[in-house]
C-alpha cells in the first residue's frame, strides 16, 4: 500500500501519542500488536526492528530494573527476609515502560519508508514554510554524519595511545567532553558554510519556488487519516 508520507506521519504521531498515554501493560501490548501489523502492512522487515531495538536494550533494562525496585504497591513478588524487594506494581510499571519504548521505536520505523524529499514536499504543500521544512530534513540528513565524525575522532584518540576500555569513568567523561569539542565545532562551521553555499546557489533568492513533483492526497489518504485520528481521540477520551 502506498500512502502519502503525510498520512504515514499522522499514523506515527497517533501511535506514539497512544503509547505515551496508555500505562497498563495490557493496553500497551495491544498497541504493540497493532503497530507490528502496520509495519507488516508497510512491508517493513520485522528483523530490522530488532536491529534498532538492540541499541536501546541497555536503556530498557535499566529502566525496567529501576521501576521494579522503586515502585511500591500490590503484592510482594520477591522479598529478602522482611525487606520487600519487588512488588507486583513495580513489575507492571517496569513492563509498561519497556513496552512503551518498543512501540515508539517501532512506530518511528514507518518514517523510513519514504524519502526526506517527499517529507519536505508534504510539509510544504501543507503550507509549512519551505525554509523550516528544509531545515528539518537537513538536520535529519546530518545526524548520521555527526555520528560518523564522532566515531572518527574516537578512533583518532585511541590511535594516539588511549586504551578506552581501561580509563576510569571520571577520566572517560573528561575525555568525551574533549571529543565532543571538534564535532560540535565542526558542526557550527559546517552550518555556516552550508548557509553561504546555499545562498550562493539561490536559496531564498525568490519568494516563490517551484517543485518538480506534486504529492497528491487521494481518497485513501483522507480515509486512513480520518480513521486514525478519530480512533485515537476516542481511545484517549475513554
Amino acid at each position: 500500500m502506498t500512502l502519502d508520507p503525510r498520512t504515514k506521519m499522522v499514523i506515527v504521531i497517533c501511535l506514539s501519542t497512544l503509547a505515551l498515554i496508555y500505562n497498563t501493560p495490557e493496553r500497551l501490548l495491544q498497541l504493540l500488536i497493532v503497530t507490528v501489523l502496520l509495519l507488516l502492512l508497510f512491508r517493513i522487515d520485522i528483523r530490522s526492528v530488532w536491529v534498532y531495538l538492540k541499541r536501546f536494550l541497555q536503556l530498557m533494562l535499566v529502566v525496567f530494573i529501576i521501576q521494579c525496585f522503586f515502585t511500591r504497591g500490590g503484592e510482594v513478588l520477591l522479598s529478602l527476609g522482611s525487606v520487600e524487594l519487588i512488588s507486583s506494581q513495580g513489575f507492571l510499571t517496569g513492563a509498561s515502560l519497556v513496552l512503551r519504548i518498543i512501540v515508539v521505536i517501532s512506530a518511528a520505523l514507518i518514517l523510513t519508508t519514504f524519502s526526506s524529499r517527499d517529507f519536505i514536499l508534504g510539509l510544504v504543500q501543507w503550507k509549512v514554510p519551505y525554509e523550516l521544512a528544509f531545515m528539518v530534513t537537513i538536520a535529519m540528513r546530518f545526524l548520521p554524519l555527526f555520528r560518523d565524525e564522532f566515531v572518527n575522532v574516537v578512533t583518532a584518540v585511541q590511535l594516539r595511545g588511549v586504551e578506552l576500555k581501561q580509563v576510569s569513568w571520571g577520566k572517560k567523561i573528561e575525555l568525551f567532553r574533549c571529543l565532543l569539542f571538534p564535532v560540535v565545532f565542526g558542526a557550527l562551521l559546517k552550518a555556516q558554510q552550508l548557509a553561504v553555499a546555499m545562498e550562493s546557489r539561490g536559496f531564498r533568492a525568490y519568494p516563490r519556488r517551484t517543485y518538480l513533483r506534486r504529492l497528491d492526497f487521494i481518497l485513501v489518504d483522507y480515509a486512513v487519516m480520518l480513521i486514525f485520528v478519530t480512533v485515537t481521540i476516542i481511545l484517549i477520551v475513554y
Partner: peptide, 13 residues
Amino acid sequence: SLAEIGRSIGYVF
C-alpha cells in the same frame, strides 16, 4: 586494540 596498534604505528588522517 586500536591503542596497541597506535603504539607501533602513527597514523595521520
